[in-house]
Deep mutational scan, measured.
Amino acid sequence: GLTEEQKQEIREAFDLFDTDGSGTIDAKELKVAMRALGFEPKKEEIKKMISEIDKDGSGTIDFEEFLTMMTA
């Protein structure tokens, strides 16, 4: 499992990506986040990433899903 410290770091990354503070990361926010990390993702790639992570089919990534992605 994760230490509380690791969870906190992932939470901070999540909050950075969640620019509108909605508690979820949408495609637009993910794209901005990827760019910040030096990637140039295409729209299809973003969609694919979200569909792989987005277990509940909401079209957005919540913290639990993000946590799973970061620790996979």
Rank of each mutant, 00 (worst) to 15 (best):
G1H: 14
G1P: 11
G1R: 11
G1N: 06
L2Y: 08
L2S: 02
L2R: 03
L2V: 05
T3V: 03
T3N: 04
T3H: 02
E4L: 10
E4I: 08
E4D: 12
E5P: 04
Q6T: 05
Q6Y: 14
K7E: 04
K7H: 06
K7S: 04
Q8M: 08
Q8F: 06
Q8H: 11
E9Y: 11
I10P: 01
I10D: 00
R11E: 01
R11K: 08
R11V: 01
E12D: 11
E12A: 15
A13I: 13
A13Y: 10
A13Q: 06
A13L: 13
A13E: 02
F14R: 00
F14T: 00
F14L: 03
D15K: 10
D15Q: 09
D15I: 08
D15V: 06
D15M: 12
L16A: 11
L16D: 04
L16C: 13
L16W: 09
L16I: 08
F17R: 02
F17N: 02
F17T: 04
F17M: 05
F17D: 01
F17Q: 03
D18F: 06
D18M: 05
T19M: 11
T19R: 11
D20M: 09
D20F: 05
D20T: 07
G21C: 13
G21V: 02
S22Y: 02
S22L: 03
G23W: 02
G23N: 03
G23I: 01
G23S: 02
T24L: 07
T24R: 12
T24H: 10
I25S: 00
I25F: 02
I25E: 02
D26P: 13
A27E: 05
A27D: 03
A27I: 15
A27V: 14
A27H: 06
K28E: 10
K28V: 05
K28R: 09
K28N: 12
K28G: 05
E29Q: 14
E29I: 11
E29F: 13
L30Y: 01
L30E: 00
L30V: 09
K31H: 13
K31G: 14
K31F: 14
K31L: 15
K31Y: 15
K31W: 15
K31P: 15
V32C: 15
V32D: 15
V32S: 15
V32T: 14
V32R: 15
V32G: 15
A33I: 15
A33S: 02
A33L: 15
A33M: 13
M34A: 02
M34Q: 01
M34L: 11
M34W: 10
M34K: 01
R35W: 09
R35H: 13
L37W: 04
L37P: 04
L37G: 02
L37M: 05
L37K: 01
G38Q: 03
G38P: 01
G38C: 13
G38T: 02
G38H: 03
F39N: 02
E40H: 13
E40L: 07
P41E: 05
P41W: 10
K42P: 07
K42A: 10
K42R: 08
K42F: 10
K42T: 15
K42S: 15
K42L: 12
K43L: 14
K43I: 13
K43P: 15
K43G: 14
E44M: 05
E44D: 10
E45I: 12
E45N: 06
I46K: 01
I46S: 02
K47L: 13
K47C: 15
K48R: 08
K48G: 06
M49P: 02
M49L: 11
M49N: 04
M49E: 03
M49K: 04
S51Y: 05
S51K: 05
S51M: 09
S51V: 05
E52A: 12
E52T: 08
I53A: 09
I53E: 02
D54R: 06
D54N: 08
K55N: 08
D56C: 14
D56Q: 10
G57L: 06
G57H: 10
G57A: 06
G57R: 04
S58G: 06
S58W: 06
S58I: 04
G59P: 03
G59R: 12
T60A: 08
T60L: 09
T60F: 03
T60M: 09
T60Q: 10
I61H: 00
I61W: 04
I61A: 01
D62G: 08
D62Q: 06
D62S: 15
F63R: 02
F63G: 01
F63Q: 00
F63N: 01
F63A: 01
F63M: 03
F63D: 00
E64K: 06
E65G: 14
F66G: 00
F66I: 02
L67P: 00
L67T: 02
L67V: 05
L67H: 01
T68D: 07
T68N: 09
T68F: 10
T68H: 12
M69T: 03
M69E: 01
M69L: 12
M69V: 06
M69P: 00
M70R: 01
M70D: 00
M70V: 15
M70P: 00
M70G: 01
M70A: 04
T71Q: 10
T71C: 12
T71R: 03
T71G: 07
T71W: 13
T71D: 04
A72V: 08
